[in-house]
Write a protein that binds this DNA or RNA. Sequence first.
DNA 1: CTGAAAGCGCTTACAG
DNA 2: CTGAAAGCGCTTACAG
Lengths: 355, 355
Amino acid sequence: VSVKRAATIDDVAAAAGVSTATVSRFLNGTQPVGEATAARVRAAAERLSYVPQAAARQLAQGRTHSLGMLLPDVSDDFFAPLLRSITDSATEHGYTLLIGIRPSGHERPLPLGKQNTDGLLVFDQSLSDAELHRLHAVHFPLVVLYRSPPPGVDVPCILVENRAGARAATEHLITHHGRRRIAFLRGPEGNEDSAQREDGYRDALAAHAIPFDPALVGVGAFRERVARDTVTGWLAANVSFDAVFAGDDGSASGALAALRQAGVAVPQEVALVGFDDAARARYLDPPLTTVRAPGAAVGRAAVHQLLRQIAGDDADLRTVLPTELVLRRSCGCPGNDQSQNLDDDPLSAGSGYGH
Amino acid sequence: VSVKRAATIDDVAAAAGVSTATVSRFLNGTQPVGEATAARVRAAAERLSYVPQAAARQLAQGRTHSLGMLLPDVSDDFFAPLLRSITDSATEHGYTLLIGIRPSGHERPLPLGKQNTDGLLVFDQSLSDAELHRLHAVHFPLVVLYRSPPPGVDVPCILVENRAGARAATEHLITHHGRRRIAFLRGPEGNEDSAQREDGYRDALAAHAIPFDPALVGVGAFRERVARDTVTGWLAANVSFDAVFAGDDGSASGALAALRQAGVAVPQEVALVGFDDAARARYLDPPLTTVRAPGAAVGRAAVHQLLRQIAGDDADLRTVLPTELVLRRSCGCPGNDQSQNLDDDPLSAGSGYGH
DNA sequence: CTGAAAGCGCTTACAG
DNA sequence: CTGAAAGCGCTTACAG
């Protein structure tokens, strides 16, 4: 047994005394094969430790059996549960996940496409509208996550219930904690999730006859430092507020840092609520009350819709997943970070790295 | 221009009035091409928006131009900076990163190998010693991360200075904060990083003539919950200690939760130090003093060594990266979580997701 | 500088 | 149930 060259289907066929067609059929189960033949092929493949070469199958079949995932950038703890559910779902269906990172600014060509992938999960802004349009026009299977497709481009999308979640969070501050001067930290310009969260925030104010005050809306940009600076600015300017609803958990962290820095007690003086329930949320002090956006469910739904398209079926154009208010202590609730918070930690469920 | 079928090299060749060989040479720059010819080919490729099909090149060339990354599992915030540096380095050198997740227990066959990848980055225990041996025996390029290869298997490895880092952390507790009853939270059984960190811990004790007390070593398993339970047990049993050196930041979080729960003041009554400087470290309260293990540098080094092997060069068998003690407040230092901690956050450097 | 042609390792009608 | 053969879309000696 030479160690130099990996065994090919020809080697297996020769060893088993059959044609390559038969080997292929048996290994793929695409057509019945005689019992005796099967045994010989199995033995030969085993003995030669034959592994089919992906490129050759891909070329012959015209499909790659792999899914691409395109990210605008790799950042923060929001990512882990999502990635995990996507890889799990893909693996479960016999697909390999190919990840391409698209740095912001995307000058470079797409690393992933029809050439190396059967379909693509597109995060947020990692594909421009024009690119989305072009790929969809050639019927390349696509699913967009955390955004809707541009008008006229019927690409299935996976969204979360931003508006209802944001409304629930804001109403909780009003109803349970008597807050009426609630500030809002916006996400990045043009971000769809953020716009919807702001709508929910306004819904809640309106429902409780609290006038909307533009002075209480600031930029958080889903960035910790930006949010910190904004809140620090408010404090310096003596803006009066008794609560902050942050557009995401990252900006909530920043707000918390600014408040702590200024000696403002959270939640006593200013209550705080975030959005996402990212991994860090439970570790903040006080633990962050936030709206859980189900990352794992988003991942599963995305893979499902992508596979339907690959199979030639129609996919749902719009999947909206429910959000849920998670009460911890930053809003003023008694919280419960002993059992609940740690035990359902989606991240500690794994085995962890060996480091 | 038909929208049905993607253009192939034949289409381009026909459109440009040259042979496919010429198209290939021009596009890959493998051989000089006449100026006029080049112009025609460029125009044709452009007009047909030709993208070479990866599988065909792979088959013809016998290489995939992609790197695999194998993970035992996707977990926690330790992962993000590492993944980011790996993808960046790979992209920079014209490689695509293919990620395969190997769930613990690994009953399933390897998703990544010679069939679809030019080389593999192997994390921790995601490959068994036998598999490692087998792949190395057939000269498949491999780099192991956060572990050394099994004896007799000359696979390059990337490690961090665990022992020195752990010693520095422990000595800091002794020297600067006068602690002498320092507990240690071990990592998972058989974990190399953890063993080395324990060595460093013992080195420090010995250097200061503090007897090693086995009652002060407990299992943390790099898992938050496990560590929490261990520390809770110590407190219940009235074990006396004035500091905890946790094997990683995850177990440090758990220790902190247990201490807070029991009303023990950190750092006044018990000082705490972790290892890794994971994303969460700066968000704990108090911010966690920890040993920074340079995830991004590990990623870059790993890709570098892998590419060298792919190029047929010799790679360094052992790369050990320095660690650095990061002083925050959990050890009793005044800390400085205003500017430094946020501004150098490797995770907030990206654009963030639109969620 | 350019082309004709073989070959990479599979799959899959087609024929039996 | 099985095989001979064409074909997937590239690359690359080989010859000129």
